[in-house]
Nucleic acid binder design. Sequence first.
DNA 1: TGAATAAAAGACCCTTATATCCTTTATTCA
DNA 2: TGAATAAAGGATATAAGGGTCTTTTATTCA
Lengths: 150, 150
Amino acid sequence: MSTTQSESHVLSKSCQYALRAVVYIAANATPSHLTGAQEMADSLEIPKHFLSKILQQLTRNQLVSSTKGPNGGFYLSEENERTTIDRIVEIMDGPGLFKACVLGMPECSAVHPCPLHFQAVDYRDGLYHKLKRLTIQELADVVHKGHVQL
Amino acid sequence: MSTTQSESHVLSKSCQYALRAVVYIAANATPSHLTGAQEMADSLEIPKHFLSKILQQLTRNQLVSSTKGPNGGFYLSEENERTTIDRIVEIMDGPGLFKACVLGMPECSAVHPCPLHFQAVDYRDGLYHKLKRLTIQELADVVHKGHVQL
DNA sequence: TGAATAAAAGACCCTTATATCCTTTATTCA
DNA sequence: TGAATAAAGGATATAAGGGTCTTTTATTCA
Ligand code: FES
Ligand code: FES
């Protein structure tokens, strides 16, 4: 009589880690002290090698910047700081997360709605539009002001 | 330079299938013709054996009713019809889906918010409260009136 | 009673997400 | 130059979700 529950989530773990890491970099990296993967892994309690993979993906897609070697690490260019959260989500979890039907139907629109479309769509779109306007820098500011956990 | 994207989702596939199946039963089962797993699998285009597993889980938890043998199948008792959607989601995906932090932090509250808490929480709660009040029967009615895909 | 039917149950496999390890490349500085 | 450092990259391992198959149990009805 074992009731197996598949753990579901809005954002994949990779995406959650990515967001926390980027905010961490924004809040902690300075020109004289870049943020290393090790430091981040320790501080955020994310498996180091997994974090590295994620950071690689983000740098490849130019959402964060990095330099190798001693005193190397990750940082954000001015342009990176203006990146909006939805871009990170899109890179990590793909586009379509905020487009897809909650019931997994092939189409999602008011013309071909599923039974839950009208209950779900405003929630989904609401969050999406907020993330579209929210920048890394803005999140980092919130962290600086304290009162949020990372 | 391959950018692997982990597919994420609000509801697990099992849960999506469960919801569609239950609504299908509500909309199609009659006392003289119960809904069989085969019929549902064909109509909803869900792998039959996988669907069976899911239906087993739902019947074990008394969210749907069933009888074996010829002319057997699934149906909803009056009580079943008054089940709210959130119960199904809870059985399939576990509680905590609507409680958990979007960034995966151990706590989620206004007292210990993550950087995205205030952007995400009202939408999350909004959907949750809708599903808490919405019954299977109400969804089935929408289907009967047409204009929704299943 | 027994053949047919359909759900219940359990064992098993495949794919994907998550996580770890090892090697290579770039950079610093003594 | 060369030793040390840290990211980049590739290969591999583990866990969970998704999916299939076979056997068992309950029910109907000829
Ligand atoms: S059709 Fe299902 S959410 Fe839009
Ligand atoms: S603490 Fe992250 S969503 Fe509430």
